[in-house]
Amino acid sequence: MRNLICPESERLYQSSKSEDMPTQEQTLEEILNLAAKHFKVGRDKLTPDDDFFKTLGIDSLQALDLLTRLENHFHVELPDYELQGVSDFRTLAGRIQARL
């Protein structure tokens, strides 16, 4: 079904969205900084397409810890199943961006 939005509402929606929301690249950068700081890994050692389980060397409890830190940092809810199978920072940033 097609969504009908009047042009003025669409313009207002887009302008408010772009003003308040970080870009996906900014979100990604924040995730990388947060992961580097918390897991005590040099920021220069992390790249967007890294498998964060391997790069950070985290187990299942630490994965939950990371999930909670991301939720608290970005003030979003990330259901566990949304992250199932996600292992690289870039995809993770996309999941978070979709909830901002």
């Binding site: 999930l67 909670t68 939720e71 608290n72 809810e77 259901p79 566990d80 199943y81």
Partner: peptide
Amino acid sequence: LTGRSLNATK
């Protein structure tokens, strides 16, 4: 029914 986990704030 979803089995999802909630953080403390939620």
